[in-house]
């Protein structure tokens, strides 16, 4: 089997999150990935897509922004790539919540900051590349 690449374009709106998750689930199912692998991949992509939409577009006042999602099906890997032309932002560089924070009682916790950590922990590999002026957030799931 050769590799397949499916490309989709979305408006930078939170409305699209469900469709993103559905597309990933469908392709993952078709190619024999487990329910848990697929769920975790949709979770990781959802978290980062949310950040792109909110911080890259909505908070910047960009109303008609779009971004792309590529689903790449290789022999031993499923790769999702989010490609956006918003302000350069490398999530890998961000400080993750400390162990101390994660043990802080919920009454005293700051709100937010968990998305990137969840994304990193939910896939086999989470990478960022800046290519031809665009942010590429890359999520890799290895076939077990």
């Amino acid at each position: 089997m050769g590799s397949q690449i499916h490309t989709y374009t979305f408006n930078a709106s939170l409305e699209v999150l469900e469709e993103i998750r559905n597309l990933i689930s469908q392709k993952g199912n078709e190619h024999g990935y487990s329910k848990k692998e697929i769920y975790n991949l949709t979770l990781a992509v959802d978290e980062i897509a949310t950040n792109i939409i909110n911080h890259g577009y909505i908070e910047k006042g960009i109303k008609k922004g779009t971004f792309n999602m590529l689903i790449e099906l290789h022999e031993k890997q499923l790769i999702v790539r989010l490609v956006d032309g918003a302000v350069p932002y490398n999530p890998i560089d961000q400080n993750l919540p400390s162990e101390e924070l994660l043990n802080t009682p919920l009454e005293d916790r700051p709100i937010g900051g968990l998305g990137i950590m969840i994304a990193k922990q939910s896939v086999d590999e989470f990478k960022y590349e800046f290519i031809e002026g665009k942010n590429n957030n890359i999520f890799v799931v290895n076939k077990k």
Partner: peptide, 15 residues
Amino acid sequence: FVSSAGLRVLLMVYR
């Protein structure tokens, strides 16, 4: 499905 946004809802209810 629950993302970190959903966890924040649980946090607000808990509080």
